[in-house]
Write a protein that binds this DNA or RNA. Sequence first.
DNA 1: GCCAACGTTGGC
DNA 2: GCCAACGTTGGC
Length: 139
Amino acid sequence: MAYWLFKSEPDVFGWDEQVALGEAGGEWHGVRNYQARNNMRLMRPGDRGFFYHSQKGREVVGIVEVIGTCHPDSTTDDPRWDCVDVRALRPFARPVTLEEIRADPALADMVLVRNSRLSVQPVTEDQWRRICELGGTEP
DNA sequence: GCCAACGTTGGC
DNA sequence: GCCAACGTTGGC
């Protein structure tokens, strides 16, 4: 199983909306960046991802599960763009802020720190465990 | 709201 | 294939 991080502006689509989609989850559509898309192409059912609120919030708020593999993005006819579906798994007991992540030497190499603009990014197992620990949640 | 970092586009 | 111009993202 691999680990990822999904970024979304809460004003556009936040954790509460992801939760509202329930077990069936929904498309992680709208990605128009090759690196982010390529990461989604690498995803397999059962992979886990952090749900991160960018701009307003700047914190990891919960865990999602990847369901199904990459498929065409229903919001465009452009064949270049596809996406996976995800469903909310559980919220963090407390959100882990970008500030905390930046302050933790164990997380200094996170893509979130190194390349803040990439909207779908890989997370290592060590980083995954550390952030779950900070968030008061089972990995 | 500003601006740095990064990606993409298009002229040559 | 290079690179300048432009657009977008996201932290601050």
